[in-house]
Amino acid sequence: MTRKILSGHGSGGKLMNDMIETLIKGTLGPDSIQLDDSALLTIGAETIAFTTDTFTITPLFFPGGDIGSLAVNGTVNDLAVMGAEPMYLSCGVIIEEGLDMEVFEKILKSMKAAADRAGVKIVTGDTKVVQKGNADKIFINTSGVGRITGRVQRAPVREGDKILISGCIGDHGIAVMAERNSLTFTKGLQSDCMALNSMIAHVTEAYPGSIRFMRDPTRGGVASVLNEIVKGQPFSAKLYENDCPLREEVKGVCEILGIDPLYAANEGKVVMIVSAEDAEGIRDRMRETPEGKDAAIIGEITGEYPGKAYMETPVGGERILPLLLDEQLPRIC
């Protein structure tokens, strides 16, 4: 059987990371490819952050967002977590012939509203239409550039640092999965899809030197981000399950479908590794913004299991948080 691209190669898990590391980075230039949320480039005296992301989500519209707002906010966040000030976005669309013009218009309006909210401009783009069946209604690629303001001086992660999340875990991934499996809600569960640049700026203004690392835990979720941080390092990332903020509805869906919220996608959260002494200050600073009102300190960097992420459970036991091979599927066992 010749090797084939599988759905898992796009899941944010090990299958994807291995392919990127070996095939893509190996072929396109190990010295030029920067494996981070955005690439940092120096042009003349300016340092800019440059990123790109493609969105293929179905359903196109879900509680709390749509493919348009997801595309804008996702790209703004990939710039913001690099400590950059997001400025300009591109918008490349691939549309399957037969899509209602009204649907396309609705998505564009949503993109414009999201861009205005985040204070960025969509300045360029491209439109392609493919034959029926060659795309699933519409795919959107957004690239973005932002200015590095020099406010955030990254320092290496070290033992004793604290792990912080800007709000409830798993909202987006679980809201979409509930929709797909026709689960409904008494009150509701929304995707957390939102731009984080103003919250991050609010935090970095007050604590420029105490943030070691930032990343938005999208595909693969919080657990995958922690695995990326500790991979090949002498330290480990320890979570405390009791401290992880989870909405009741997210727990409910995860129990029914047998999936783990720590691996579900978030589209409006940031994971930060910060110095121990400023952890509470940074958390409180986040809580001053609407995007960060549920921010929490959920763990710390330890030396117990080098290169691994793990978690202390409510009963006082421990479990390793491995990097999953590919995406989670509803299971019965």
Binding site: T186, K187, E249
Partner: peptide
């Protein structure tokens, strides 16, 4: 049936 605010047929 309902649990934690999630409803299922």
């Amino acid at each position: 049936a309902e649990n934690r605010g999630v409803e299922q047929e």
